[in-house]
Amino acid sequence: MEKGNHSTVTKFFLSGLTDQPELQLPLFLLFLGIYLLTVLGNLGMIILILLSSHLHTPMYFFLSSLSFIDLCQSTVITPKMQVKFVMENNDISYPECMIQLYFFLLFAISECYMLAAMAYDRYVAICSPLLYSIIMSQQACLSLVLGVYILGVVCASAHVGCMFRIHFCRFDLINHYFCDLISILKLSCSSIYVNELMILIFSGINIIVPTLTILSSYAFIIISILHIKSTEGRSKAFSTCSSHILAVAVFFGSAAFMYLNPSSSSSMDEGKVSSVFYTIIVPMLNPLIYSLRNKDVNIALKKIKERRPFL
């Protein structure tokens, strides 16, 4: 049995977002600011939920898990991306590229299922409020989150495991700002049939299952809201879902634009810009989406400030 992947390519070069010299420094400063906001926002959300006892509910347990995923996702992508803005060549070794690809897939897939779990939580809260504490017990929530990460690990392991069977002969320039699965496969000089089959199977599962879960949850939620007689009750029920709906739309919309476009060079360049949204912008926006109009979060922040007057 053959060992290794027998590739003559030991490192790759990332093309980055743009080659225009005048844009390098502005983009570096822009994405540095975005990354700092992402770290501050998501880490702050996790700490706030941990410190505030009235936020120890299933909804905020899932939200803290989503913040952890966003924080990790951004950290996997952004620091390496920043190198291209300050250095002429942005190379990455083959092992580092596979590691980055693995964790990117792990957290991207986990986010899909975490958003689905959050949709299910909202469905139970609105459609079965009397049974909410029983259905969404601590054990059930832990099982859902554990299941999310297991699915992410299994899918990421399958994709990266299949990468070790292909050969890279001469081409080593990845037309992206990180080691994206499709961009790497374009450099192969051996058959990628198995890899494409894996992408087809897992992409179908990872898109259809969360999407159906989210759509069916909100279908029942809308029906339940329509049966609420008071306008105030409808408004309150909808407000608990609005943040999640916005987060889902931004994440799945930008990801779909990237992966459902035709695979031409121009669409790849457009795809790089699109992928910025779900790899870098979405992790920054999620804490803002879930906190700006969230009364519970604002109350928790006020209580933390009252406990620590020097803040």
Rank of each mutant, 00 (worst) to 15 (best):
residue 4 G to H: 07
residue 8 T to P: 14
residue 10 T to I: 09
residue 14 L to N: 05
residue 19 D to M: 08
residue 25 L to Y: 10
residue 27 L to I: 03
residue 33 G to L: 00
residue 38 T to W: 03
residue 40 L to G: 02
residue 44 G to E: 00
residue 51 L to P: 09
residue 52 S to G: 12
residue 54 H to P: 05
residue 58 P to M: 01
residue 66 L to D: 04
residue 67 S to A: 09
residue 69 I to Q: 03
residue 73 Q to H: 06
residue 76 V to P: 13
residue 78 T to N: 06
residue 86 V to Q: 00
residue 86 V to R: 04
residue 91 D to L: 01
residue 92 I to N: 05
residue 96 E to T: 05
residue 104 F to S: 12
residue 112 C to M: 06
residue 112 C to L: 08
residue 126 I to S: 10
residue 129 P to T: 04
residue 130 L to R: 11
residue 134 I to D: 00
residue 135 I to M: 09
residue 136 M to G: 09
residue 142 L to M: 14
residue 144 L to Q: 10
residue 146 L to K: 12
residue 150 I to A: 13
residue 153 V to H: 08
residue 153 V to R: 13
residue 153 V to M: 07
residue 160 V to C: 11
residue 164 F to M: 04
residue 168 F to G: 00
residue 169 C to L: 02
residue 169 C to A: 08
residue 171 F to I: 00
residue 175 N to F: 07
residue 177 Y to P: 00
residue 183 S to L: 06
residue 192 I to Q: 09
residue 207 I to K: 00
residue 212 L to H: 07
residue 213 T to K: 10
residue 223 I to C: 12
residue 228 I to H: 02
residue 234 R to L: 10
residue 234 R to D: 03
residue 236 K to H: 09
residue 246 L to T: 15
residue 248 V to P: 09
residue 254 S to W: 02
residue 255 A to G: 07
residue 257 F to Y: 09
residue 257 F to Q: 05
residue 261 N to F: 15
residue 261 N to E: 12
residue 264 S to N: 13
residue 266 S to G: 09
residue 272 K to L: 03
residue 274 S to Q: 06
residue 280 I to C: 13
residue 289 I to T: 07
residue 289 I to Q: 14
residue 311 L to P: 03
